[in-house]
Design a protein around this nucleic acid. Structure first.
Lengths: 207, 207
DNA sequence: AAAAAACTGAACTGAACAGTTTATATCTCA
DNA sequence: TGAGATATAAACTGTTCAGTTCAGTTTTTT
């Protein structure tokens, strides 16, 4: 008869908890965030929080996974359609670079790198739901470009690894360490154009 | 008359403390390392440790600084002498890549990235004594190669940022997250050769 | 050998914080 | 409206750990 919401029943405040956790973890890091803080930010009692997540670690992993998936979803869709390889890659570069330099992107990166020793599964979850998807998409894209005669690449896996690195080009580390302000559009374009130029100098077939 | 050691008087066990701290920090990270552990590893009482360093943070910064300086010293010297740009860069790439993938390199990177939020001066110390020196050296080298007609580069700063990134090419992140074993020499060579090839396709003048 | 400096070890303080418990309140839906 | 599920506040437990203190020992210097 009625199927109001077929989703898993998980209590009214589940999303509130995730949302508060997201805010506090991204602000303070994993160790820096206290569960009391998260409960307060979520507008929820500590007991409620613990009724949803057995411990702090799993709560964090959930937040990180959601965050990565959202981002790589957006990045992946963009590239799929476009025909001209150079234009498509420039577009992908813009997306990646913007994300690498964003507050969320940087903070997730910091936390994951800092905590992956203590929680090995965290590193894997993050990698699978973020970088791995980008790599796969990029590889498929490059393969198509090669098949279409737009590019010439012997080692597609290597190329698909090189491109995102090129999009970091110095800015990323400095931002990670808090050594500079957010780059201007101009600076981002410089990095993007540089990445595409380098990439096509090596792998392009166009004259 | 006698000047046995003109060095600053700093007590007999200063080096022991640094050495124990180095071992424990690199093994357990900053938060993971307890001061009691460090004192034990150093073979020194906690009181002695605190007579040299006012707190854990400054002790860690000292260790990190020393570690970075040692590494970039080694990397910088190598490149200075060689004439042929391609050979010199391949050599530099090998050094950098090896360091990026080494236990010490990875662990220092993890800790610095993870803690630089909490201790802003840590990020700066690290950057100045490591990446910045590499960047400066590389820039000077590229300038000489351009002057000698071996390369053609419009934006030398950008190029000097791109090259180290190319040396990471996927391996680095996976290693950071503990998702794979140490690369074989063959894998490292693949990355190095790839980096040099890409770089010279864009910036080389040789036929 | 005496004085000064460096070191020890063990106990202590104080604070932070993850996770639990309990008695009470509010919401949902049949 | 009433039963069961869900949420709350607040106090509590137990642990970890940075940093301090101090009375006593060892090393260095003169």
């Amino acid at each position: 008869m009625n199927a109001p919401q077929a989703v898993v029943k998980q209590g009214r405040k589940f999303d509130q908890v995730l949302d508060g956790a997201r805010r506090v973890f991204l602000r303070d890091g994993f160790e820096g965030a206290s569960v009391d803080d998260i409960a307060r930010a979520a507008g929820v009692s500590k007991a409620t929080l613990y009724s949803y997540f057995p411990d702090k670690r799993l709560l964090f992993i959930e937040v990180a996974k959601i965050e990565c998936q959202a981002q790589s979803d957006a990045a992946v869709e963009q590239v799929e359609a476009i025909q001209d390889a150079r234009i498509a890659l420039a577009k992908a570069a813009k997306h990646m670079t913007r994300f690498f330099m964003s507050d969320v992107g940087l903070q997730v990166h910091r936390i994951i790198v800092g905590e992956s020793q203590r929680f090995p599964e965290l590193g894997r979850e993050f990698y699978e739901s973020g970088p791995a998807r980008v790599h796969t998409t990029l590889r498929a894209f490059l393969q198509r470009a090669v098949d279409a005669g737009q590019m010439q690449i012997e080692d597609i896996d290597l190329a698909a690894d090189q491109f995102p690195e090129l999009c970091k080009a110095g800015l990323h580390l400095k931002m990670l360490l808090g050594l500079r302000d957010a780059p201007t559009d101009e600076e981002i374009n410089r990095v993007i154009d540089g990445a595409v130029d380098v990439f096509f100098a090596r792998y392009g077939t166009d004259a």
